[in-house]
Structure formats: C-alpha cells, structure tokens
C-alpha cells in the first residue's frame, strides 16, 4: 500500500454541553471550543500506525470546512500525517456534498485506502464513508475495530448488532473507524512544531465544479424534552417496591 487518505472534521468538542439557540436556528457554535471529531482521531491514528509499521508510505489529511479547520489538519499532521489539504467553504455542507468533494480528491490522489471516522459527533450522520464507497466504487468496510493488512487486501473486524464480524476487502478500500480501533496518540510538542512546516494546500470548494446545493431544509432545531429528576429512596426494600410497582404497571407485550 502506498497512499492513505484520511479525513478529519472540525466539530464542537465532545465534552462541551451544547446549547440550542432560542430562535430554533441551530446549535450555538460561536465562542464554543472546537476540536477534531473523536472518530477521525482514531482514523488518523490507524493511518499513521500503518505507515510506522511499514505497511504504507504516505498519509494525506483532508478536511472540508471554514479556514479554522486548519487546526484539525495541523493536529493530524502533528500525529504523523504527511501533508494536508483544506477544502475551504463557509457553507455547512450536507454529507452528500462532502462525499462528492472527497470523491474528487480520491480521483486526484488515487489512494489505496481511505480512512474516515464512522460518524461526526455534531450531526451524528454516519454517512460519508458509505457514500464515498458508492461514488468511488472502492470496497466498503464500516465500523472497524481492527484492521490487518494482507496482500492487496485488508482484514477488517467490524462492530455489528450481534457482536463483531471479520471480513476481507480488496484494495482500494474505504474503512470507517470505530472507537475501539486504537488509542489515538497525543502529539508531543516537537511534532506540533514540525507540523507547521508540512505542506498544506488550501483549495476553495467552489473550484471543484460540484453542485453543493442542499437537498434538505432545516426547518428548526429544538432542545429535547427535559427529564424531571425523581426521588431518592433510602433502602433496598423501597427500591424493590418501586421496581415491582413499575413492572406491575407495564403493558404486556
């Protein structure tokens, strides 16, 4: 394997308790801490580890978003990525448009493997890897918790509803990372400094000649219904009585 393309998205940090704007126009993102989508960190770690193990030569990092997305590309370069590409746009693109832009990058870069996160924790879509597989014709292996490299193929263990399944997919392939794939490294300061000198190309999204117009209208964004806290019981018999009462009131299914 020569080249791995890895995608990283800049999202509201997963530790932030988000706030829905009172006018229903969306989630407040200004003045909120942003960072690399956690699943993308696992994808970057997997890519860099493959290079370190001598299974691949180069890791190209791509992000699509506003100028500030530079910071997540730099984080990925500090983790060991070779070079970066920022596809710049101020618009909040739908996953289909993201996948189309990435397909254009795949056509240019001709990677053997594309590693993505399984989902972005802002919109929780879980789309882009699968869409990219459909658009490129590359083999698809989603929700990976283990990746092994074989001759011209990958052995991927996927997390599924009944447990795990191991499949063998031919290269070129698209793999989306689950959280148990690895433990992402924290880049040491010298690596962070070094990342700034690695190549980073910035290209406007509009230059790709792809229609990025949204297909959906977001009518409104609202907070979920609040749960009311309940009571604290003092003893196991009280707890058992409460559970017994609940069960007695359940509809038979």
């Amino acid at each position: 394997m020569k080249k791995i393309l890895v995608t990283v998205k800049r999202v509201v940090d997963h530790n932030v308790r988000i706030r829905v704007r009172p006018d229903g126009s969306g989630v407040e993102t200004s003045g909120v801490r942003m960072s690399m989508n956690p699943f993308c960190k696992h994808a970057v770690e997997a890519a860099v580890a493959l290079v370190e193990a001598g299974k691949a030569e180069e890791v190209v990092v791509v992000s699509i978003g506003p100028k500030a997305s530079n910071d997540v590309i730099l984080t990925a370069l500090a983790m060991g990525g070779t070079r970066g590409i920022l596809i710049e746009t101020e618009a909040a693109l739908e996953t289909l448009a993201i996948a189309k832009l990435l397909a254009a990058v795949v056509a240019e870069e001709q990677p053997d493997l594309v590693l993505l996160g399984k989902q972005a924790v802002d919109d929780d879509s879980n789309h882009v890897g699968q869409m990219l597989a459909a658009l490129t014709g590359f083999a698809q292996a989603t929700f990976a918790s283990q990746i092994g490299v074989e001759e011209g193929a990958l052995e991927v263990t996927r997390e599924v509803d009944y447990g795990r399944v191991t499949v063998s997919v031919p290269l070129p392939a698209i793999v989306t990372a689950d959280l148990r794939l690895n433990t992402p490294r924290n880049a040491a300061l010298p690596m962070v400094m070094k990342a700034r000198s690695k190549p980073l190309a910035v290209r406007p999204a509009a230059d790709f000649g792809i229609s990025l117009a949204p297909r959906l209208t977001i009518e409104t964004v609202s907070p979920p219904s609040e749960r009311e806290g309940g009571r604290i019981v003092a003893s196991v018999p009280e707890l058992a009585a409460a559970i017994a009462q609940d069960i007695a009131g359940m509809e038979a299914l």
Partner: peptide
C-alpha cells in the same frame, strides 16, 4: 443531532 441534545 449532537448525541440527542438537539432535535432537528
């Protein structure tokens, strides 16, 4: 969206 902290 956002782990169920908002509904779109």
């Amino acid at each position: 969206i956002y782990a169920g902290n908002a509904i779109e």
